[in-house]
Design a protein around this nucleic acid. Structure first.
Lengths: 144, 144
DNA sequence: TTTAATTCCTATTGACTTGATAGAGATTAA
DNA sequence: TTAATCTCTATCAAGTCAATAGGAATTAAA
C-alpha cells in the first residue's frame, strides 16, 4: 500500500498540474482545495523539491509550481520520493539496489526471480503514467 | 517492500516444497536449515495454516507440510497472508476492496486509474509464479 | 524602511507496526 | 507415562507514520 504521504503528494501535484498557471500556487490554496493537512503538506513539498519535482518561490506572493513539465513527472517519480523504491526487495531495486541482509547467493535465489519480474511489471506501468495524463483524464471526466 | 515475515514464509515454504516428502517436517528442522528465528516462524506457520497453505500434525513426530500441491501455491497467495493485499491502494484491491478514507469520487480518480493498472500488472506476475516453479529453479541451479 | 505574507527548518508527539522472545498449554507417538 | 512436538497468548523494544508546533528566513508590497 502507498502511504498517506504519497496520496497527499499526488493530489497536490495533480492540483498544480491542472492549474498550470505562470505564477506559483500558495500552499494554503493547495491545502484548502485538496483538503490536505497544511503543515504536513509543507514537509511533503519540501521533499518533492529536493529532486526537482516541484520548485518554490519564497516570500510574499511566493508559492509552489511543478519543477518540470507535467508529462515528465511520472507516478514512479513521485512514489519513489514519498515511499522509497518501487521494488518488493532491495535486491531487485534498480534505483536503490542493496543486497538482502541474509541473502545466501543472489544469483540462484528463487524468491528474487519472482520479485524481479514483479518489479519490472510495476515499474513499467508507473513510469509510463505521468501527471499530464492524469490531469487530462480529470478534465475529460469533468472533475475539474 | 515485502516484510521480513514474508521472506521467512517463502523460505520455509520453499524448503517444504523442495523436500516434498510424505511425512511432515518439524519446525526445528526448517528453522535450522533456513536459519530462521524459530519462535517467529511458529507464528508465521500458524498464519499460513489458516488459509490452508500449510497443514500441521501435532504431537510427537508431528510437523508441517504443504496444504496443497506446490504448483497451486502462488507467491501472491503467500504475500497476501503475510503482507496483506498486493494492491497499492485499498480501492484497487480485488481480494480486499475498501474505499479510500478521503475519496471524493472513485470513478473519476486519476490516482486510482494508475494504481489499478499497477495492481493488475503485479498480480498477473505474482499469481503466475508458484512454489513448484521456484523449487524446480533451485534444483536446476544446483542450490539444493 | 517597515510590514505582512509566504516558504523553510527542526523538534516533538501519539498511535501503530514490525520483528522478535517467552512460557505455559494441548496433543500425540513411542 | 513420557517426551517431543505444535498451539496459544502475552510482552517488548525499536522503528515508522501522520501529523502538529513554533519560529527563522525571505521577499513583495505598503
Amino acid at each position: 500500500m502507498i502511504s498517506q504521504k504519497a496520496r497527499y503528494a499526488l493530489r497536490a501535484l495533480l492540483y498544480l498540474a491542472a492549474k498550470a498557471g505562470d505564477h506559483p500556487v500558495q500552499i494554503g490554496e493547495i491545502a484548502e482545495a485538496e483538503k490536505l493537512p497544511r503543515k504536513f503538506l509543507e514537509q511533503i513539498l519540501a521533499e518533492l523539491k529536493k529532486p526537482g519535482i516541484v520548485r518554490s518561490q519564497r516570500g510574499r506572493s511566493g508559492g509552489y509550481s511543478l519543477g518540470r513539465p507535467a508529462k515528465d513527472i511520472s507516478f514512479a517519480d513521485v512514489l519513489r520520493v514519498t515511499d522509497g523504491p518501487l521494488a518488493l526487495s532491495p535486491c531487485v531495486s534498480v534505483m536503490a539496489y542493496r543486497k538482502c541482509d541474509d541473502c545466501f547467493e543472489e544469483s540462484v535465489c528463487a524468491i528474487r526471480k519472482a520479485l524481479l519480474a514483479a518489479r519490472d511489471a510495476t515499474a513499467q506501468i508507473l513510469e509510463s503514467r505521468n501527471l499530464a495524463m492524469a490531469a487530462a483524464q480529470l478534465k475529460r471526466s469533468g472533475a475539474i
